[in-house]
Design a protein around this nucleic acid. Structure first.
Lengths: 187, 187
DNA sequence: TTGTAATAGTGATCTTTGTCACACAGATAT
DNA sequence: ATATCTGTGTGACAAAGATCACTATTACAA
């Protein structure tokens, strides 16, 4: 468990065991069951999560009650409603388990503490944030350059595992296409 | 000019004049004319830019030769092909002036130097990166939840100034809609 | 075990958006 | 001054995708 986070951090920044235990002391280990919410729309978002195992969806509910999946979060991902987390306000999205899930959770206060006391972790979070920004920009790009079928094929190439773990209906609402249209792409 | 960058930084992090001059010594002031490229697809991306005045487009050219606008960059914005900049590789996008433009430019080496020697600037860039990530995610969300006309209206609400400074053809390619369809939205 | 969700596939039809063709105005260069 | 390029609007038609209706299968809870 601790190893998982250590390996994850060391992909970007080398870190000693001492530093790691300092960092870990600011996280708490939490377990959730399928369909549990880590937070819901309208609630204050107190935590950011590192996913140790399991699978989640970050969902936006529009005015018609339709669900839109902003992202799937898997092992080794960080997830939250970052807008709400960093500004300590109410979530406009919900984070819900698709499978039983285990996470390390960090409060905003602790996040700030880790940042100020560990330059390495600040470097780590900066790199991580840059990568997140780039990933979102690439997703924008796929909406600009590709039609629904192409986006489906790109997703299949990038995360084939999702097609085994996630109902097609959810994939559709991640791709921005109706479930019927998605279904016709592979029939 | 220096004032502009100082005010910009201080929106997120207080900074002394000494720190500012240290930071500024790592930037260089550059001027470009309408249609000039700051970098083009395929070139190494050596710099990241803070825009003092003017207007730019970050463009992705697809295999059919169609242009897609990933973002417009205005006064007070930071822009680059961040994926290429941070990994010191070739641009997959181009950055081109829509108007005459004045920027502060910072090389990747200098960026890293500023980060390691100024904790405040590291804080600043972290916050900035988080905001960039959130903005991109919101753009994804608008593709998921809204049709072309709604996206057009959202853009008009958020950046009315663009509609005076940018040809409709470019707005269309930012919104992910054909120029003809865009034209029909307000006629 | 039986009834109820949730998931998935598919035909028919409607709506949105893209593409092609053309006209025209304004800017810019020679 | 005139030719050329850019930007824009619009009609006609084609294509992509959404919606609605119905069916079937599987998973799961009482």
């Amino acid at each position: 468990m601790k190893e998982k986070l250590k390996e994850h951090i060391e992909k970007l920044i080398p870190i000693t065991d001492d530093e790691l235990s300092f960092v870990l002391s600011h996280f708490s280990l939490e377990n959730y069951k399928k369909n549990d919410f880590l937070f819901q729309k309208g609630e204050k978002v107190k935590n950011c999560y590192f996913i140790i195992s399991g699978l989640l969806k970050l969902v936006y509910d529009d005015h018609d009650g339709k669900q839109h999946i902003v992202s799937f979060a898997m092992e080794d991902w960080w997830e939250s409603d970052f807008s709400a987390y960093f500004s300590e306000t109410e979530a406009k999205m919900s984070l819900q388990c698709i499978e039983d899930t285990r996470v390390f959770s960090i409060s905003f206060k602790n996040y700030e503490k880790v940042l100020t006391e560990s330059p390495k972790m600040q470097q780590f979070f900066l790199k991580k944030s840059n990568l997140g920004h780039i990933a979102s920009q690439n997703r924008v790009l796929s909406f600009l350059t590709s039609n629904a079928k192409e986006r489906y094929e790109q997703l299949f190439q990038q995360y084939p595992i999702l097609f085994q773990r996630v109902p097609k209906t959810l994939l559709a609402s991640y791709l921005g296409v109706s479930r019927e249209t998605l279904s016709r792409f592979y029939s």
